[in-house]
Design a protein around this nucleic acid. Structure first.
Lengths: 214, 214
DNA sequence: GACATTCGTGTACCTACAACACTAACTTAG
DNA sequence: CTAAGTTAGTGTTGTAGGTACACGAATGTC
């Protein structure tokens, strides 16, 4: 059979750090695009499904597992890789900051978190486009799903949740309207605990009421 | 390089026939799944992008080009093909009934349109799942895009447009509310023509105001 | 010309979203 | 210990969009 292709998975890994949406990038050590930053990824091995390959990559880069992982889009332009055609199945992952490693990266020495809106462009390959696609999807799903909770620890305050939404959407939200909407969704459960970080009144902790996943 | 895979594109081709959403299937002439019905598709050739491969398949099956074509999802489970792993990038296409060939199929002798909700299950491979995914996407996009127009000729009546939506959603819609919504969208332009098919009052014809594409 | 068929139109209710400001609980500085 | 600073928490009102609902108009058929 001669119609074979090289197939990779690339995973856009998001987290929240410093009340900001950040993305994990690795610096390429070898050509092509040597020393440019790239979305972590690698070849799909013969014995694993696409989802398994994405999960393996994620584990290798961050050490975490059991996080939100979703297929994004498949890119297969002829000239996206100068070495010849490589089809890449892009995924995106959401890692809560309490599980995300501070500096990340076990194998790639040069790996770090970058603000999602301020990456060291241009990235390698067509990765700017992949990142842009991931951001669009993330923003789109925020409105009509509970995906925002994936970026928070199990216990969180409503202000933290609001900051996540604001970081992703890039705009300020009204506190009362936000809390009203969250309440109407019925997906959070108040706990009998508070936290007090720094100044101000202590905040009630909440937990996500899982419908499925996580 | 040993990490290579077989990659195919499969295209779910929709049209409207007899005021019903229908899908084009081909009957397999060879194993595996010999004589089972399947979504048309084929291998991606080395010199073409994924989009080009999908467009070529569509042209080969239906003879049409220049129709709505959108990438759906990529399926790469290990056992979706008994011969070994084949990654398939699924697309879906919307063909208006005035361009869709009545019986369709140039190369595959056994090709025909089936009601989308009543296909000869089980289909070959994981094609039932692919079809289901395509239907979900189509229903989802109907609400917030102008995708419904892709399934109509250039000139159409509002009743026809409503029938398209009802066929896809599988439920009856209120005529006045539907027209109000279409009018509010501002994407149709009334023509100074009417059609009269069979009985009843003649219907005004409308045209789609293209914002992009088609 | 009576009947069947499809086209075309408006109003009232209700629900979801947007705008908007103050009090509560705690820490820090003086 | 008191005043000032900081973050948490809470309701109401207006508006826009969605849903429910019924009849006259234009044509063909018997």
């Amino acid at each position: 059979m001669s119609v074979v292709q090289r197939v990779t998975v690339d995973t856009v890994i998001f987290t929240i750090r410093d009340t900001e949406l950040q993305v994990l990038l690795v610096r390429r050590a070898i050509p092509p695009f040597k020393s440019r930053w790239a979305i972590p990824g690698g070849f799909v091995l013969p014995h694993e499904s696409l989802d398994e390959a994405a999960r393996r990559e994620l584990r290798e880069e961050t050490g975490v597992d059991d996080v939100w992982l979703e297929q994004l889009y498949t890119f297969g332009d002829l000239k996206r890789d100068p070495r010849g055609r490589v089809v890449t199945v892009a995924y995106f992952a959401l890692v809560s900051p309490d599980r995300a490693p501070p500096l990340a990266g076990s194998d790639a020495a040069d790996a770090r978190w970058w603000p999602a809106g301020n990456t060291p462009a241009p990235l390698a390959f067509d990765h700017d486009r992949i990142l842009e696609t991931a951001l669009e999807r993330l923003r789109g799903k925020l409105a009509y799903t509970s995906i925002g909770f994936e970026l928070l620890p199990k216990k969180f305050t409503l202000s933290q949740l609001q900051h996540v939404h604001e970081a992703i959407l890039g705009e300020a939200l009204d506190k009362r309207n936000f809390r009203k909407r969250v309440d109407a969704l019925g997906v959070v459960r108040p706990l009998n605990e508070s936290v007090h970080d720094g100044a101000g009144r202590p905040a009630r902790l909440f937990a996500f009421r899982r419908g499925k996943g996580r």
